[in-house]
């Protein structure tokens, strides 16, 4: 029993980190391919969840383990690139796992009813310093 639980724990810990790639949900007429290009061209990015809604572009990214020390700089770089690609959109890029988590929740939601409210909430907690 004890052995089994340890094996399950190790498996759970190992599989928890294996999600990779870029997931994009687009509800706007904008083309989302350049988002994918920008994110995939950065070798530090492991996982990205992107949501395009009305005039917002929300991107939560997870960087490779040893790039975590400079994750803020990586996010800023991607944000600048995306702002150049989409001058009409309000771009928010964050390497914080909370933003990734909340963006994923929004993407998985079926109805788009509360999107505006939720996006404003995510943006406000992203700005908090302390």
């Amino acid at each position: 029993m004890k052995k089994l639980s340890i094996i399950l724990l190790i498996l759970g810990l190992l599989t928890g980190c294996s999600e990779k790639g870029t997931y994009i949900k687009n509800t706007t007429p904008y083309d989302e391919h350049s988002v994918e290009n920008v994110l995939m061209s950065n070798e530090h990015v492991k996982l990205a969840k992107v949501l395009l809604y009305e005039d917002e572009l929300l991107a939560g990214i997870r960087v490779n383990t040893f790039s975590r020390f400079k994750k803020k700089a990586i996010a800023n770089k991607i944000q600048k690139k995306l702002e150049r690609e989409y001058p009409d959109l309000k771009v928010t890029v964050s390497a914080d796992s909370k933003i990734l988590l909340e963006t994923e929740k929004l993407i998985n939601k079926k109805s788009e009813k509360n999107y505006r409210k939720k996006i404003d909430k995510i943006k406000s907690i992203e700005k908090e310093q302390t």
């Binding site: 914080d96 796992s97 909370k98 933003i99 988590l101 909430k121 907690i125 992203e126 908090e128 310093q129 302390t130």
Partner: peptide
């Protein structure tokens, strides 16, 4: 705190 409350990685430390 990050998962169940409105804390980010930066603010969860307190």
């Amino acid at each position: 705190y990050i998962t169940y409350f409105d804390f980010t990685e930066r603010t969860a430390s307190n």
